[in-house]
Amino acid sequence: MKPDSDLYSFLRSKDFVEEEEPASNVDSGSTADSGASSSQEAVSLDFEDPDLVEKLYQYSEAELDEVDFGIVKVDNDGTVLFYNEYEARNAGVRPEDAEGKDFFTQVAPCSNNRIFRGRFKEGMMKGTLDETFTYTFTYKMSPTLVDVRMLRDERSNNWLLIRFRYAK
């Protein structure tokens, strides 16, 4: 379903957003055996699953590269610890260029603001992070509408999950 927001309509009218269908979700019938998946089968994780953050540990980094949304693991300061292939493909930043760098100032400087980084910092101050919001990335790409989910797990790992509205 296409968003009906004024921002989306404006971006579409200026050719900033492509007229294509969103990436389809992974078949809900597919499951992973003992946390592993075959190279032919995509890992089945749901961006909106309330228990998603704990499910991320069932998969290797190679398997998380197959997920149909961006997964960025950062430390408390925002340094990238893991950057999956889906995010790399859609953001135009290779994992090896992102890992070890500050997500907010070096990887995605367009997120270094109150709307994005501010929510992250508030979560770090509280010791909990569970935020979902819509955002427009503009760095290294034309304006791109995404859904962002920020989570902190019980092991104190921070996850930035990014679902592109129209993935490449």
Rank of each mutant, 00 (worst) to 15 (best):
S13R: 15
R152Y: 00
A91R: 06
D68L: 06
P143I: 04
P3D: 07
Y86S: 02
T132C: 10
F69Q: 00
R94D: 11
D68H: 02
V26A: 02
P50T: 15
Y8V: 00
A108P: 00
D65Y: 02
F116P: 03
F82L: 08
R117C: 00
A32P: 02
D6T: 08
E122N: 09
A88N: 05
E21R: 13
S38M: 07
K168T: 08
D49I: 08
C110R: 12
S60T: 12
P95R: 01
M141K: 15
L145A: 08
M1D: 06
R114V: 02
D147H: 06
V43M: 01
L11Q: 12
Y135G: 00
Y8M: 04
E19Q: 06
Q40P: 00
S38N: 11
K55Q: 14
P95L: 00
S9L: 14
S5I: 09
N157P: 00
D130C: 08
M125L: 10
L161H: 02
C110Y: 15
V74L: 04
V107A: 10
P22S: 07
M125A: 06
A91L: 08
F82M: 11
G100D: 01
S60G: 01
A32T: 07
S44P: 09
E131F: 04
S44Y: 11
Y139I: 09
T138H: 12
I71Y: 06
S28C: 06
A23K: 04
N90R: 02
L129S: 03
F69M: 02
L7S: 03
S142A: 12
A167K: 08
V107E: 06
M141N: 15
T128A: 09
T136I: 10
R155W: 02
E96S: 10
D153V: 05
Y59C: 10
L161T: 03
D51A: 15
D147F: 03
F82P: 01
D153I: 02
E21H: 13
Y8F: 07
F16K: 15
L56D: 13
R165F: 03
Y135F: 13
E131M: 03
S34V: 07
S60Q: 03
D4A: 15
E21V: 14
E48T: 11
I71C: 01
Q40I: 14
T144K: 06
K55A: 04
L160M: 11
D4V: 05
F164A: 09
S142L: 14
P143V: 03
F10I: 03
E154V: 13
N157Y: 06
D27T: 02
N113M: 06
E99V: 13
M125I: 04
G118T: 09
Y166G: 08
S28N: 08
M1R: 08
E85P: 09
N25V: 03
K140I: 12
L52M: 13
N84M: 10
V72W: 09
S37N: 12
S38W: 12
P109D: 14
E48F: 11
S34H: 10
R12N: 08
A91K: 06
S44C: 13
T136L: 07
F137P: 07
V26G: 05
T31K: 14
L11H: 11
F137L: 13
V74Q: 08
L64P: 00
Y83I: 01
A42H: 11
M125F: 05
G118S: 05
E18N: 09
M1L: 14
A108Y: 04
N84F: 07
T79Q: 11
E99T: 14
N158T: 05
K73Y: 03
A167P: 04
S142W: 06
K14A: 13
